[in-house]
Computed example of a mutant assay.
Amino acid sequence: MNIGELAKQSGLAASRIRFYESEGLISQVGRQANGYRRYAPEALQTLQLIQSAQQAGFTLQELKALMPAPGEHKREELIEALERKIAQIEVMQAQLAHSKAQLLGVIEAVRAHPEDVPCSMGQKQVLASIKINP
C-alpha cells in the first residue's frame, strides 16, 4: 500500500509515518519504480504497536531497542522492558499520590483559614506546607 493508504488506515499523518521510518521503526518499506514508498501490510501492525507502546509510556528510543528485525524474536528482552516500565509507572503513581495528598492538605488549610483575612497573610504558610518529595 502507498503512504496515503497507510496514513488513512492508521489514522496517522504521512509525515509521522515517514518520521517513524527514518527512525528505523518501520522496516517494511519498498520503493516503486517512480520512487514512491510501498508499505507491506505488516507496516500497519507495526504502526499500531508503536502507538500502543507510546500510550503505555514507552519512548521511541525504548521502542527502537525492542523492535525485532524481521525473523528475530526478543521475548526475554521484551518481558524485562515491560517489567521495567511497570516499575516506572508504580514510582510515578506513588509520586502522584503523594502530590495529591499534599494538595488536599493545602485545600483544607485554605478552607480553614478565616475568609476575612487577606490571602496574602496565609499564603506563605500554605506554600511552606507543601513539601517537595525527593
Rank of each mutant, 00 (worst) to 15 (best):
I86R: 14
A53K: 01
Q48P: 00
Q95S: 14
L44G: 01
S120C: 10
E76T: 12
S99W: 11
S27G: 15
D116C: 02
E90S: 13
A101M: 12
E5D: 14
E42Y: 00
E42H: 07
Q95I: 05
S52Y: 10
Y20M: 08
L49N: 07
S27V: 11
I50E: 01
K124L: 12
R38P: 00
A81R: 09
I17S: 06
A65C: 02
A43E: 00
R75Y: 08
K8W: 02
I17L: 02
R16E: 08
E42C: 02
P134I: 01
V110F: 05
Q28H: 11
G24V: 03
L96H: 12
K85V: 04
I89E: 08
A14C: 04
A109M: 14
R75Q: 11
K85G: 05
M67T: 14
K74R: 14
G11S: 11
V106W: 02
A97V: 07
I86C: 11
R31H: 07
M92H: 14
I3M: 04
R75S: 07
R31Q: 00
A81D: 13
A112L: 03
F58K: 04
P118S: 06
F58H: 02
E83Q: 14
L66G: 02
L96D: 05
A128W: 02
K131P: 00
P70A: 06
M121W: 09
A40P: 00
R37V: 09
G57E: 01
E5M: 09
Q95A: 13
Q102V: 10
R37S: 05
Q32E: 10
Q95N: 15
R111H: 06
I79K: 15
Q102C: 06
E77Q: 15
P68N: 08
I3D: 06
G4H: 10
M92D: 14
K124C: 10
R38D: 13
M1I: 03
K131W: 08
A7P: 03
A7E: 03
G24H: 04
P114C: 06
E72F: 09
E80Q: 15
S129L: 03
F19C: 04
C119P: 06
I130S: 11
G35Y: 01
I17C: 03
M67F: 14
Q48H: 12
R16N: 12
G122W: 11
I3P: 05
K100C: 07
E90K: 15
L47Q: 01
Q88L: 13
V117S: 00
F19D: 01
R38M: 06
K85Y: 11
S52W: 09
Y36W: 03
K74A: 04
M92F: 07
Q125T: 10
I3L: 04
L82R: 12
L82C: 15
A101L: 10
Q28W: 05
G105I: 06
G24E: 03
E72R: 09
F19P: 01
P41W: 07
H98V: 10
A7D: 04
L60A: 11
A94K: 15
K100Q: 12
N34R: 00
I17K: 04
Q125P: 01
Q48V: 02
